[in-house]
Design a protein around this nucleic acid. Structure first.
Lengths: 281, 281
DNA sequence: AACTTTGTATCACAATGCGATACTTTGTTC
DNA sequence: GAACAAAGTATCGCATTGTGATACAAAGTT
């Protein structure tokens, strides 16, 4: 009944440490509390399970039992986890949602893009997404969903690997080459489907092509049956800040119809957002 | 150009401490780091400003300069804040979005509700929301937006006071009376507009009426020019777990047309979700 | 150029978080 | 249903870790 199966690839939640921030003050307890929260994301994608026991939190967070207990209880007190008094298991708390709002409310790009994306979604009654690059992942920040999509693909916050997805490709294609190279070098270049391209030269050729064309079509590179397209949102200086992504799900859309209809829609939508952006920034 | 003005009431981010959790282990550093993150939410609604300097973080979080620095830098290292090297100001980091996904992906109610809400939004081309109660606030967890709405009202994670909004009223009306009373008692019963009802007896009468009718129409109680309606999503035992909320914005909708069209839509949508729920739970 | 404001670095102290250990409860097996 | 295993909770002395007053540096302002 509850089908959590997802057809596309998920990324884990990113590296635990950032760049060269050594020397900066760092409060270890804070890092550990986020390890606990991350455990729930890992736990969910792995086990399709909504809540975790203390022992599972230990394993998924890498903390010992005492620490896991302390931080879990702390997070319950703060409302970021909830604890079932019966089962004594923990689950994500509703207060977590606050941070989405905190991030998005100050996000000018999303603010500008939202109405344009909504309009676009109506043209062919399709899902339309806005993606941004975060490390080696593309994160969906705004999603205008359609009823037939699977639940996981309706949610903002989803991460997918940049190198093998249409939105990732167009963003990488329109950023400084050395930065793009760094992302590829840091990426875990695994074959997700049979079609996934994993060789750096082939990927760079794809990116060059995407840059030339102004869009990219991902033909079952990360999803077995689906074709999706993306076009870059560009700053005045030509650098990509995001991508408009439109998936074409299997029965209804194919390579041909995506090229004919969704590609122009994605390109046009991204261009409209880019134009509005440069005015405001 | 960038209009961040919002027409409805926002709640602050909730109490800093929960119930009677004394005795439970608590890591103070973790609490303080969340004070810093909350500062950004406060800062944004107050100042309509996207980033905060260290001194502002001090004021908004209640921490001293050293602590503010330590926790801000820690959060930067973890990716939950970003720091502009030029201005040395901090802003929310994209990694914050991860927690929305973490919460939502395991949320069976949202999963069930999403397609039904999408369908409903197409009937009159309106925004349709799913709200849940958190403390004295109603939090929007799922929003199907329409292009004409203001940005703030498109975002999941928004909090509004329960007592003076339609979704809050229908949820309070369909929960154990003592719990509802407790929520009202804890609420900050301020007049938001001229029409806001703030007397407990009047509020309880409203709730009784909402319970009898199966819906509630909020006539400019929290928004000066708008009328909105909500209907409860009920568990098999009749307890509310959420509310379907449909706002009727001013020029297009009025009290009459809301009653005629949006009320039946909200009631029907909430009932369809309730029915799917009980099967699954 | 003098001043104010804001951000960064330092460091000795002890409070605070740590985690090994022991205890209690749940639920699993025979 | 007794015996056992596994998961969750409580305890507590130690020293690690975070603390915050102070001093310093770098931007902004007059």
């Amino acid at each position: 009944m509850l089908d959590l199966t997802d057809d596309d690839t998920l990324s884990d939640i990113g590296p635990d440490v950032a760049e060269d921030r050594r020397g900066k003050p760092f409060v270890a307890s804070v890092g550990k509390c986020f390890q606990v929260l991350k455990a729930f994301r890992r736990g969910q994608t792995d086990l399709r399970q909504r809540d975790l026991g203390l022992t599972e939190i230990c394993k998924l967070s890498g903390l010992d039992k005492s620490a896991a207990q302390r931080f879990s209880e702390t997070l319950v007190t703060l409302g970021y986890l909830e604890k079932d008094p019966q089962t004594r298991r923990y689950r994500p708390g509703i207060a977590l949602i606050d941070f989405y709002y905190t991030y998005m409310v100050s996000h000018r790009l999303a603010q500008i893009a939202m109405p344009i994306l909504i309009e676009a979604s109506k043209v062919y009654d399709t899902t339309v997404n806005l993606c941004e690059l975060a490390g080696t992942d593309a994160i969906y920040t705004v999603r205008i969903p359609q009823a037939k999509a699977s639940y996981g693909t309706m949610l903002a916050g989803r991460r997918v690997p940049a190198f093998c997805t249409a939105p990732g490709t167009v963003i990488l294609a329109n950023m400084p080459e050395d930065e793009a190279d760094a992302v590829l070098a840091a990426s875990d270049l695994r074959k997700i489907t049979e079609q996934t391209v994993t060789e750096i030269p082939a990927l760079k050729a794809q990116m060059a092509e995407a840059r030339r064309l102004g869009y990219h079509v991902s033909d079952r590179q990360s999803q077995a049956h689906n074709v999706s397209t993306a076009a870059p949102v560009l700053r005045l200086d030509g650098q990509a800040v995001a991508a408009v992504h439109i998936p074409g799900y299997a029965p209804h859309w194919n390579l041909e119809s995506v090229h004919e209809k969704l590609v122009p829609l994605a390109v046009d939508t991204a261009r409209r957002i880019s134009d509005s952006l440069t005015e405001a920034m």
